[in-house]
Nucleic acid binder design. Structure first.
Length: 625
RNA sequence: GGGUCCGUAGCACAGCUUGGAUAGUGCGGUCGCUUGCGGAGCGACAGGUCGUGGGUUCAAGUCCCCCCGGAUCCGCCA
């Protein structure tokens, strides 16, 4: 804790003041002050106005006066503003001392929102019949950033990636391979997931318009996949695992890793569904309709909306019957039918496991939690609400299923245009089926090329290998940052040309600040001595930077509590802004040795803070760029 | 038709959870800054009926309701 230390001190003293004044029941909030109003502002005078029957601007001076006896800690001045706020001014040197020293500890920026509680996060979950596009990237990046943030907030996080390998979209490409005879090997060494999505899927679904009989064929393929015994089924496994392998490469390229893969086909074959179906009947959470439009169906009743058919009149289950067992499994509400085996190593060093129904001697894993977070776009909100409600009825109230919803990524009219669609100036929804999307690997390639050129301009002496490495780091950062810097409920209108921008509120701006700081430290040829004279750091730009560093933990807490990764992105940006202003106005190396050391400590503190914060959103910090 | 979400500067967004001071940031525009620790930078200026109307309140961009505009979902498809 750091800026929090200041808040804690003020809160404690204010409570004593209230106690002395016999008005201790007044609730109040302390907040970081706006520019020009000191460091911390308190609304206590507003809150007390009614009780004391006085105006806020009469109460504030009284409080301020009473507080004066507590000055001398971190607070050097307290002031009643005519508006009614009580404003606190901190002792800069002491704040610098506290914050910079604490920033060197390994637990700096860690908070205890989770108290060690286990949470299961599912994200990515892309159908294994195509490559990731930028819409999927939003899901991946939100899920991965949230995972990192929750870990920082002392949650024990398990991440899952659900592979829908028994859906219609898989049947579509199988039909392409078996009936339409697409070659199994992509031309010119094309990535297999790109090939399946761009070629096989798009061209196969096109054919449904002219050859409706293909759709029947598709349905029979789907049935065979679900049953899992035929040659078609094993061919499906072969295709989907190959696509999955390529998809995971894209995810790893983005710096994302997982704990376990779940396959829908195994959920289907595990017999979890019949078991849960019986329980749902017993608990009377579902209803058999004997008349009406859903005659002879089992339905989930839903207030204010259409009932959802769960089991058709012919006795077969609908798709939602695949999602319910999975949700229940994640919450640990059913006996785990799975065995586990290693799927692969990951670039992060973490081993990726997968479920299997084939018995083995490998150790059992447990990925279930009382808190399950599922990252899915907002268009699936209705289905997710049904599942959330059903799970809350199905379990004890200490279990919680959360749909972490985010708005979709659409294409700007210019970008849609470049893909051959005239939208009349409007943005357009992406469509895998129509081939209307921006492929994730390709946008990363374009970003890498651009950033490599930019880096080369500035660092002509660097080797091609170093340049590529830096370019990868900046490219991934840029894409990730664009995907989480805004609120989850805002649509992102993606424009390929604009996405290549590296100025202003972008990841490269932030990384650049880090690199600049590194160059100062490098040039100084000094190791910071943190037993420094922080009283020397009196400049406004220095102080503003120190304060921002001290607020990392507040940002982590906010982001974790509200499941809002953008809070960390905003923090990183404001930290970089503070540093760049400092850099422009304060010369670190042109000062007396004692002051140089104090400033070097600050620069070093800035670096460790920014590195920690950027890690929470999966962004690396190049020392040069 | 019903449900959910969005509406803040030319454009893209923050601020709304927890009401309070002077509504912030980026892009774009105009004008400046480099024999200096890296200009992917810094500074200045211009640009706002916070969609409309009501309500609650001493106080509303923030809370409540109506309306308008936009997005999205609503199959015995997955």
């Amino acid at each position: 804790m750091s800026f929090q230390t200041l808040l804690d001190e003020i809160r404690k003293n204010l409570l004593t003041v209230l106690e002395n004044e016999k008005i201790s029941q007044i609730p109040f909030t302390l907040e970081s002050a706006k520019e020009g109003f000191g460091d911390v502002s308190c609304n206590i005078a507003f809150q007390a106005a009614k009780t004391l029957k006085k105006k806020p601007n009469e109460i504030a001076p009284l409080i301020a006066k009473q507080y004066e006896k507590f000055l001398g800690g971190l607070v050097k001045k307290v002031e009643a503003h005519p508006s009614g706020y009580v404003n606190f001014y901190a002792e800069i040197g002491k704040m610098a001392q506290v914050i910079i020293t604490q920033s060197q500890k390994t637990d700096f920026g860690k908070v205890d929102v989770g108290q060690g509680q286990r949470v299961t996060v599912e994200h990515t979950s892309v159908n294994p019949n195509k490559a990731l596009h930028i819409g999927h990237v939003r899901n991946v990046v939100v899920g991965d950033s949230m995972t990192r943030i929750l870990r920082q907030a002392n949650y024990d996080v398990q991440t899952l990636n659900y592979v829908d390998d028994s859906g219609l979209q898989v049947a579509d490409i199988l039909l392409g391979f078996t009936e339409l005879k697409f070659p199994l090997e992509p031309p010119n060494g094309q990535k297999f997931d790109h090939y399946c999505g761009d070629e096989v899927y798009v061209k196969t679904t096109e054919q449904y318009l002219t050859k409706p009989e293909l759709q029947e064929k598709r349905n029979s393929i789907l049935k065979e996949i679900e049953e899992g015994k035929s040659d078609i089924a094993s061919f499906a496994t072969q295709i989907t695992s190959r696509v999955l392998g390529e998809q995971l490469k894209t995810c790893w390229r983005l710096g994302v890793s997982y704990d376990c893969l779940n396959f829908e086909s195994e959920i289907v074959r595990s017999k979890l569904w019949p078991e849960i179906f019986e329980q749902l009947k017993k608990m009377e959470l579902i209803k058999f309709e004997s008349e009406g439009k859903n005659k002879d169906c089992w339905v989930i009743l839903s207030e204010g909306e259409e009932d959802k058919v769960l089991v058709r009149s012919n006795g077969t289950a609908t798709y939602i019957a695949k999602d319910i067992p999975y949700a229940a499994w994640k919450l640990g509400l059913v006996d785990d039918p799975f065995y586990y085996k290693k799927y692969s190593d990951q670039p992060s060093g973490k081993t990726l496991y997968q479920t299997t129904l084939t018995p083995n001697n490998s150790p059992k894993h447990d990925y279930s939690s009382n808190l399950v977070i599922t990252v899915i776009d907002s268009r699936q909100a209705r289905l997710q609400n049904i599942i959330t409600k059903l799970m809350s009825q199905f379990s004890s109230n200490k279990k919680e299923y959360v749909h972490l919803s985010y708005e979709s990524v659409t294409l700007s009219s210019e970008t849609a245009n470049s893909l051959g669609l005239d939208t009349g100036g409007k943005s357009a929804q992406m469509s895998g089926r129509k081939g209307l999307y921006v492929n994730a690997d390709r946008i990363l390639d374009a970003l890498e090329q651009k950033t490599k050129e930019e880096t080369k301009k500035r660092n002509p002496e660097l080797s091609d290998e170093s340049l590529s490495k830096i370019a990868t780091t900046v490219a991934v950062a840029t894409l990730r940052y664009e995907m989480i810097k805004q609120d989850l409920d805002k649509i992102i209108t993606f424009d390929t040309a604009k996405s290549l921008s590296l100025e202003g509120d972008t990841a490269s701006y932030i990384q650049y600040a880090f690199a600049r700081a590194g160059r100062i430290l490098e040039k100084s040829q000094l190791a910071p001595n943190f037993d420094a004279n922080y009283q020397l750091l009196v400049d406004d730009y220095e102080y503003s930077l120190i304060k921002t560093i001290g607020k990392l933990d507040l940002a982590v807490q906010d982001a974790a509590r509200n499941l809002s990764p953008k809070v960390i992105a905003k923090f990183c940006y404001s930290l970089a802004v503070s540093f760049n202003a400092f850099y422009e106005h304060v010369r670190v190396l042109d000062a007396e040795p004692e002051l140089v050391n104090a400033r070097i400590c600050l620069v070093s503190s800035f670096q460790s803070c920014l590195r920690t914060a950027l890690e929470l959103i999966g962004i690396d910090t190049p020392s040069r760029m």
